[in-house]
Amino acid sequence: MSALADASADQEQAAGWAYRLAAEFGQFRGAGSVVARNGLAARRGLPVLLSGFFEPLFYLLSLGTGIGVLVGGVEYGGKSFSYQEFIAPALLAASAMNGAVADSTFNVFWKLKYARVYDGMLATPLGPRAVAAGEICWALLRGAGYATAFLLILLVAGYVQSWWAVLAVPAATLVGLAFAGAGMAATTFMRSWQDFDLVHLVVLPLLLLSTTFYPLSTYPQPFGVLVQLTPLYHGVELERALVLGTMDASAVVHVLYLLVLGTAGLLMAGRRLERLLLS
């Protein structure tokens, strides 16, 4: 009798957890309609959309060709690569970062404070988490599109060295998630356009210093450790492992780092939107 009661209590508790979990995830429901809205709105901004595709290409052509002539080859993961081969996967990660940051900071700030698109959304059954998730998913979709196009170019140019590269686009999307989450969370704290100078202040050093253009071994300690703590480093190394075929166990750390950053950013952004718009 008492065992039965225990079992049913366990069941009830489990059901309670399931219910709570469902309720947590239920708060993301409707995010798809936010993505659909952005897709529709983007059709009129095609030139802006295309800029995200050309950016890494310009870096590859200018730096890869220009500096590549001076540098010669790069030793990486026990193998030797041309300079173009070395920076190409890094640019894939960097462009994923740039695209995600642009979408989740400037665009989100505009919609939050000026166009006030979210006020309209929150008057419907959509909650702040759904809005945040929708915005971040949109940034990811866009980023995945750019990454695919860029990867095809790398493939044609002969810079792809491994079958692991089929995961390069999902990896770029993960980099996008990390930066879109962090970017959107940061945006909810911004008061005016002046604060966006801070975004440049963060993004530019990340682009230049995250082993994008030279290997980690170049850094004197303790700067090397410092670099390893920053998010783009993990994106760059992950892409390099996939495209150049230098895969090892450290990839797990890269993936976890990016996943945690992205999820934390998403949850924080949802909570902040609630604070700002539902007061």
Binding site: S33, A36, R37, L40, A41, A115, G120, T124, P125, L126
Partner: peptide, 22 residues
């Protein structure tokens, strides 16, 4: 304040808003 979605057309404003309701 109207808070219409100025990135969308008149009709799209209705279509998109309806989708927010599922």
């Amino acid at each position: 304040k109207d808070l219409l979605d100025e990135e969308l057309t008149v009709r799209e404003n209705l279509l998109v808003y309806g989708r927010y309701f599922g």
